[in-house]
Design a binder for these strands. Structure first.
Lengths: 199, 199
DNA sequence: ACGCCAATCTTAACAATGTAAACATAGCGA
DNA sequence: TCGCTATGTTTACATTGTTAAGATTGGCGT
């Protein structure tokens, strides 16, 4: 399997793969260009044939992470009975993915695609997650909801899962899957919830 | 005002101050130990008389940031008519502070005090913000709310403001103070909001 | 008032990092 | 087969965090 010829064959993919592995193994999120090259069995400057600089390498890693996240979200949504449950499942999948891959998630947030100036809400006309979020919000909001109300709801949904992920990773919220799912599920009725689910 | 004697007098405070200044000036959050020392007009290794390593210096900066944040939150809450408005004001102050000081806020989240294992909810018996958050939640929740429901509500509140701050800083949500305030204010009734504030 | 001591700051040095420049290898088309 | 170009390598440099050894000085006991 190992080609140890002078030319590697497909180095770019190999670098991304070892990068993901290092992010999985080391708790802290800071990986080095030299470290990735060394672990791939290649010399440091070889990286520059495939990435203009370290930032580009990390950007590629973040991009790979986003695709994994989207896959996980789609898998979680698939097979849910109604749209609302599917929507909540995507939110829970977001948090669970982040908690399961803290270093990678950190990179992803550090290299989050900043939205263009033209769009009022930035999350985001280009990404799969952005459009599906908007669709779901629009479908689940009450009938007469205006554009602005939908924007706010979308922002709240994004902020909740994103913030929750960070809090669990940071250790401010205990890593309890039931608690996480409940926090996402009960989004929207925190002042109205009288029943306390004793499971 | 400038002592240029061999001994600086109060170097530790000076280092923290220039650290805060650098975080304010440079957009990206990564400041170096040598950079702080150089800008303070002192040699790099002098830092080690006051901090065991770079991490300790950054930790002190984060700590200073938290105190500023708490002050801002208290100032925002002061003078509000009822408790609910005061509570929402603290949430808005959190986001506004983060957006106004993105690099410092990044450090703060990176060095967030992880909660001890013993407490179910981690935010937190030690910090001012933690207790006031719990008090407010308990006071604003409906009468028969159980402990778990309060925990979930507190987590949701923290996650919302924290995530919102990150999204605005990251550029995924436009930096519009009215939008931010609305997203915090309308927390809890995203599916029930029919009226759209055309302000 | 004097002397020394311990706290504070300095310079010198080391390993590791990101990156640029110059050189080496080999796969592939003429 | 020859040579060109894509792909790696070695070397070198500036910068960083950190340690070790030496310089400076404010303050305390006598």
């Amino acid at each position: 399997m190992k080609k140890q010829s002078y030319h590697h064959g497909d180095l770019r993919s190999a670098l991304v793969e070892t990068g993901l592995r290092l992010l999985r193994e080391k708790g802290d999120g800071d990986i080095g260009l030299r470290e990735v090259a060394r672990e791939t069995g290649v010399s440091a400057t070889a990286v520059y044939r495939h990435f203009p600089d370290k930032d580009a390498l990390l950007h590629a890693l973040a991009r790979a992470g986003y695709e994994k996240l989207f896959d996980a979200q789609e898998a979680a949504a698939a097979g849910k009975p109604d749209r609302e449950q599917a929507f909540r499942a995507t939110g829970q999948a977001y948090v669970h993915f982040a908690v399961a891959n803290p270093a990678l998630f950190g990179l992803m947030t550090a290299y989050m695609p900043a939205a263009g100036e033209e769009e009022a809400l930035a999350l985001s006309t280009e990404s799969r997650a952005g459009v599906s979020l908007r669709e779901n919000i629009a479908a689940l909001m009450p009938e007469g909801s205006g554009r602005r109300a939908q924007d706010i709801a979308a922002i709240q949904a994004m902020a909740l899962v994103h913030g929750l992920a960070q809090l669990v990773i940071g250790g401010q919220v205990p890593n309890d899957p039931e608690l996480i799912d409940a926090a996402v599920d009960q989004f929207g009725d925190w002042r109205h919830s009288h029943a306390q689910a004793e499971s």
